[in-house]
Design a protein around this nucleic acid. Structure first.
Length: 233
DNA sequence: GCGACAG
DNA sequence: ATCTTGTCGC
């Protein structure tokens, strides 16, 4: 029986090794450059899960910064193939996110993902995975840190400090509201850190988490509740 | 060997 | 992330 355990372990490590290769390949395609003008329409995406089930719910929204409101909501359900493994979140959530973002009909200029982008062990977090796969501008906004060290930013909204791994700057810890914990911003694709910082701050009009991902989180919560209600099993 | 560890 | 009600604080 212990032999079976070893076989499963070997399969798992081979899978992770293949994921490392994919991350390295995607990383080579990553483009870092300024976003000339912060777009009016910003897309946001998030997911929710059903406890003890492998069903996942994904939502993508388009936020209008001018009108300060959501102009579109897209949804989808999908079976999860893998568990959450730190450093490999994109293989669990990526497929459903790519699918739901593809359902958006309204135009948008940049996507904000719930998680890290460049601030990742191999510099290829979820925001890089999604941004590169779709080849669209993408920014990673994590509510907590994956890797790196940082000094606590000053106390005011807009204050920030560098998030570093060794000697490399991989992102920033950005205080988006007075008296709240900072969020972790990093480049996903077709953006640079400065543009990412400005856009995230511009989208934090009332809360710690920027509107696109905050609204996506609220919408996916509703979608999950509605979906679990109509298909009990 | 002992922690740390996006969602 | 998810399981969960009321409750402490600005």
């Amino acid at each position: 029986m212990r032999l079976l355990l070893h076989i499963v372990m070997d399969m798992a490590s081979e899978l992770v090794e293949s994921w490392k290769v994919i991350q390295a390949q995607l990383r080579q395609q990553m483009v870092v450059k300024p976003i000339k003008k912060l777009p009016r329409f910003v897309a946001g995406a998030d997911m929710a899960f059903a406890k003890n089930k492998r069903l996942a719910f994904a939502v993508a929204v388009v936020f209008d910064r001018t009108e300060q409101r959501i102009v579109e909501v897209a949804t989808t359900c999908k079976e999860l193939e893998y568990p959450y493994i730190p450093g490999y979140l994109s293989f669990r959530e990526g497929p459903a996110l790519l699918e739901v973002i593809g359902k958006l009909r309204h135009s948008w200029g940049v996507l904000m993902c719930d998680g890290q982008g460049f601030a990742h062990p191999r510099r290829c977090g979820l925001a890089c995975y999604v941004g590169i796969k779709l080849d669209v501008p993408c920014i990673g906004v994590g509510k907590s840190r994956l890797i790196g060290t940082f000094d606590e930013p000053r106390t005011k909204a807009g204050d920030w400090s560098e998030l570093r791994d060794k000697e490399e700057t991989i992102g920033i810890a950005l205080r988006t509201q007075d008296g709240t914990r900072p969020v972790f911003v990093s480049v996903g694709h077709r953006s640079d850190l400065e543009s990412a910082r400005q856009l995230v701050l511009a989208c934090c009009t009332k809360h710690r988490v920027p509107e696109p991902t905050r609204q996506a989180d609220a919408e996916v919560s509703l979608f999950k509740k509605k979906k679990l209600g109509e298909i009990p099993g």
